[in-house]
């Protein structure tokens, strides 16, 4: 995304890298001195745009996560010595792989902010600090969505015995609910771990036990979808229970993360 040269930049080409990008509105009208601080959604939008832009330019997380997931499927094929899997086994492989791939993204989520002063810049701005949590969680959610766009078809292609297209519509709901939980807990844990010395170690150590209920819910909800002979159109009541558990877990940990996240961003 290359910025188009504006007249002010053309006049001062030497300061082009250092000067912050000025909006066209800022050039036509002089900036007002007293402006209201931006609302939380404007802040979240700006931060999310920044996150996605950084990810698009550096390609640090998502390609690595996707490649890791596909490689893990290959490893599972050799480790289990099976060409196709179904049922509980398939659900387990899918969720373990997605969880560990998500862990890679969680580990990298705040590293750039910590190393390059993003936290300081954010704290200097007169905005709500919860915006950081929301924006990071949404960014992680987007990473997970892209990861699953690649990993789930790869799973269907490489390992899954039943055809993917008949399970995908039902699987989608499980994926979304589990992703929300992973994003909420992952953002919180990433913010906790990034300030420590052993951040690459502590992130997974903290996140894995916290995500065990998500794995339980997601794997149990998706394993009846991945069996070979599945009665079409019939909804298992236990599956509804699992989805409800997942949704409850997402809600509770979303609220907890929202409540405690401000304390992680204080200095």
């Amino acid at each position: 995304m290359s910025a188009t040269p504006t007249p002010s930049r053309a006049l001062a080409p030497l300061t082009r890298e250092a000067s912050p990008p000025t909006t066209p509105a800022g050039q036509t009208a002089p900036p007002r001195i007293s402006r209201r601080p931006p609302g939380i959604w404007a802040t979240v939008g700006a931060l999310l745009r920044k996150e996605l832009l950084v990810e698009l330019r550096t390609l640090e997380s998502v390609p690595g996560m996707s490649l890791f997931a596909v490689t893990t499927f290959v490893v599972f094929h050799f480790a289990l010595n099976q060409n196709t899997v179904s049922g509980d086994e398939a659900a387990g492989i899918l969720w373990v792989t997605l969880l560990f791939a998500a862990m890679l993204g969680i580990n990298r989520l705040f590293v750039a902010d910590q190393d390059q002063g993003g936290f300081d810049a954010f704290l200097l701005a007169p905005v709500d600090r919860s915006a950081m949590l929301l924006a990071k969680a949404l960014a992680l959610l987007a990473y997970l969505a892209v990861l699953e766009l690649i990993a789930v078809p790869a799973f269907g292609l490489l390992l899954l015995a039943p055809p993917l297209h008949q399970t995908l519509p039902d699987l989608l709901l499980v994926l979304v609910l589990a992703d929300v939980g992973i994003a909420a807990i992952g953002t919180l844990v990433a913010a906790l771990a990034v300030q420590t010395r052993a951040r690459d170690l502590l992130g997974p150590l903290l996140a894995l036990p916290l995500l065990v209920p998500v794995v339980i819910g997601a794997a149990r909800a998706s394993s009846p979808l991945l069996v070979l002979t599945r009665a079409g159109g019939h909804v298992d009541p236990s599956q509804v229970r699992w989805l409800a558990t997942l949704a409850l877990y997402d809600l509770v940990f979303g609220l907890i993360a929202y409540a405690v996240f401000d304390f992680l961003l204080e200095d």
Partner: peptide, 17 residues
């Protein structure tokens, strides 16, 4: 922060398992 999150996790985890 960890103690709060983990303290809330204790009953939730028992429920899920």
């Amino acid at each position: 922060v960890f103690a709060i999150v983990a303290g809330a996790f204790v009953p939730l985890n028992f429920l899920a398992v």
